[in-house]
């Protein structure tokens, strides 16, 4: 599903201008990482997508819907949202009921609720905990449960705010794989993360934000290779990019296998020279 922001402004009641003229369009099925330091405007931007915030100026469009004409509850059927802190949304006594909450709000049939909930729990690896109390789960499992609760809503657009926080390497990989699979099935994904190594591994396009502006927008390979740009946005470049730069390699690989290829070419060329 296509998304677009056209000349969007937003100022909080405290007087903080969080978005200062944003133009951004995201094609259906794109996987976009939004990076920048806290306060750059990332979360404000994505909250406009489901009407949690309404722009002071400009237009936000989700698919063929102008968000100004739809309620948050309606937009929730199109834009799924994973918040940072799962404890600020979990309330049911059983994991399965927690996952069913969103689909039920969206008016799915009982059969669809059951099947979507179960498959979401399987996807995140919590199927064995369906009857457990969410508060008996470990914090990292609660995060996965919140993810399942979002996935079960079966939305064409998915917004994730720091999904990899508090996860170990295996958990990060699991979440990354889930996102990659959703991406191949055609979901539009917006990933907010400070973890550029994670973004580099999975996202295709990167939007860099600072002070309510978009500093840069383009393919992850291009954007993440620009050390100065990332430093201006107060985020760390991915490890391999920093390494390639330290070695003065001509390219900036993002993944280990890319690095190995780039290194072997560079190595050969250097030997010849």
């Amino acid at each position: 599903m296509k998304l677009s922001f056209e000349g969007v402004f937003f100022t909080y009641s405290t007087g903080v201008r969080a978005l200062d003229g944003i133009d951004l369009s995201i094609g259906s099925g794109e996987f976009v990482a939004i990076v920048g330091e806290n306060g750059a405007g990332k979360t404000t931007l994505v909250k406009l997508l489901n009407g949690l915030l309404r722009p002071d100026g400009g237009k936000v469009v989700v698919g063929n819907w102008d968000t100004a004409e739809y309620s948050t509850a309606q937009l929730a059927g199109r834009v799924g949202f994973l918040f940072q802190n799962p404890d600020e949304q979990l309330f049911e006594r059983a994991v399965q009921r927690e996952v069913a909450f969103g689909p039920r709000n969206l008016g799915f049939s009982e059969r669809k609720i059951a099947s979507k909930s179960m498959s979401a729990l399987k996807t995140v690896g919590l199927a064995d905990h369906a009857e457990d109390n969410p508060y008996d789960l470990a914090p990292f499992e609660r995060k996965l449960l919140a993810l399942a609760a979002t996935l079960a809503m079966d939305t064409p657009v998915l917004v994730l705010d720091e999904p990899s926080i508090g996860q170990d390497a295996a958990g990060r990989r699991r979440i990354g794989r889930i996102l990659r699979e959703l991406h191949t099935m055609g979901s539009t994904i917006l990933l907010i993360s400070h973890d550029l190594d994670f973004c580099a591994e999975y996202a295709e396009r990167a939007v860099v934000m600072a002070n309510g502006h978009i500093l840069a927008d383009g393919l992850v390979e291009k954007i993440f290779a620009q050390n100065d740009l990332l430093q201006r946005a107060a985020v760390f470049p991915p490890q391999l990019v920093r390494l390639a730069q330290a070695l003065k390699m001509p390219t900036a690989p993002l993944k280990v296998d890319q690095f190995v290829n780039a290194y072997s070419q560079w190595h050969r060329r250097k030997k010849r020279a």
Partner: peptide
């Protein structure tokens, strides 16, 4: 072990 390694090490 699921701890992972830095990308420096992996590369």
């Amino acid at each position: 072990l699921g701890v992972g390694q830095t990308q420096f090490t992996q590369a």
